[in-house]
Computed example of a mutant assay.
Amino acid sequence: MSKLKKGEKPINIHKHLSNKVSLSTIKRWNKSIKLHGSIKFAKQGRPLSVRNSHFVKKVKKEITKVGSQRKVAQKLQISQPSVHRILKQNLQLKPYKMRVEPHLTFKQIEQRQKFVNWVRNHLSKNDTLKILFSDEKQFDIDGVYNSQNDRIWALNREQADSNGGLKQKRKFPQRVMVWMGFCSRGLTPLVIIENGTINTKVYIENILPVARDYGNEQFGDDWIFQQDGASCHTSHDSQNWCQENLPGFIPKDIWPANSPDLNPLDYSIWNQMVQEMNWNAIKSKQTLIKQLYIARNKIQAHQILDISNKWYSRVRNLQINNYKYIQ
């Protein structure tokens, strides 16, 4: 601008700028300065017809009601891509999937509050590193899949199905019940019940001795056993066995019901195992069991220690979250 106002020719300015600005642009600027006294930049493209303040306000209001871009587009009679651009670019919003979590009754929330108080009054963070958590989970040979994330890119549905986009589920798949323990030192051996379920007799004879031996091996006589509220755990015989054979355990009236967010196996370890398993190799109960052992061995020590170190803070965060379910 200063050179043009001084009367220098556009061709000289073009050379002075080492050809960084085109000659035609400098000429256009020169014309703008003569007409308006400044460089006016013309807006590129056609004017916005939908993404104006009027529709932005309407989209913001409607999306909170219905939560669907398609329904908002239908109601406002504008295209769905326009709604998408308003949400992403104008409103800076991001889509989040609806999460499913257990419904907690008022009594269960009170139990969770009682548990937090018990932990804070009886256990330090170092004490929580000596807790042996336990849980059972059922696995079947059909495996698991995520209908939202497991996508097959193809030209049509038939091609997608032939490329692995069809998931078949058996009516009565072969399955096993798996028990495992978790602590800061590692994972217990798997206890696999191939037939039937885990009742009090099976629990006392086949599972509790494994927990006792592993806990004693890792911590000596200074550790705490955790179990949830399953009937075989809370039975009179099981509670007596724990009282007589373990250095410490969380009684049935302390551990809160319906709280998978407090057991590392529930909110982390089982899912990691599922992800590590090669479901394509599972054709029978024997191959399922083989993959369970492989997946268990793939979980690394530093992951286990990291989860254990964060558990105490997780419990304390329950109070901040009003003892509701935490992710």
Score class of each variant (00 low, 15 high):
M98V: 13
G220S: 07
L190P: 02
V50L: 07
R296W: 03
I26W: 04
Y203C: 00
D253M: 00
I11H: 12
V119Q: 04
Q303V: 13
D127H: 10
I192M: 03
I254A: 05
R120I: 13
Q227C: 09
G229W: 03
I250T: 05
S308P: 01
I326Y: 03
L93V: 05
E194R: 15
I224T: 15
T188P: 01
W241A: 07
Q243A: 13
H14V: 00
S49W: 07
H302W: 11
I86E: 01
V21E: 06
F249I: 01
N146V: 04
D228Q: 02
K60G: 15
V83P: 01
Q138R: 10
G143N: 08
A301I: 14
S231G: 13
I109R: 15
W311H: 10
N240V: 12
I204R: 09
H103M: 10
R170V: 01
N163G: 05
L292V: 07
W255Q: 03
A160E: 03
K61N: 14
K298C: 04
I78Y: 04
P251G: 06
V191T: 15
I131P: 00
G67H: 15
K107E: 14
N322I: 06
D261S: 06
V116N: 01
G164K: 00
N278H: 11
F182T: 05
K130H: 12
R85D: 10
G164C: 06
C232R: 02
Y323D: 08
M273I: 11
G37K: 06
A211I: 11
K9M: 09
K88A: 14
S147T: 11
L246I: 14
P247I: 09
G67Q: 13
R85L: 09
K34V: 09
K283C: 06
N146W: 09
S24H: 12
I33T: 03
I198F: 03
V116D: 01
M273T: 01
A73M: 07
A160S: 07
F225S: 05
V178T: 08
S79H: 08
L76T: 08
S134M: 04
N19A: 09
V176W: 01
I152S: 08
K201T: 12
L132I: 15
K31E: 14
N322T: 10
Q168S: 10
Q74L: 11
K169R: 13
K285W: 00
L123S: 08
P247W: 08
P81C: 05
K6R: 12
N195P: 01
I141S: 07
P81Q: 02
K34D: 14
W270R: 04
I207L: 06
L262Q: 05
Q303Y: 07
R112D: 02
I192H: 03
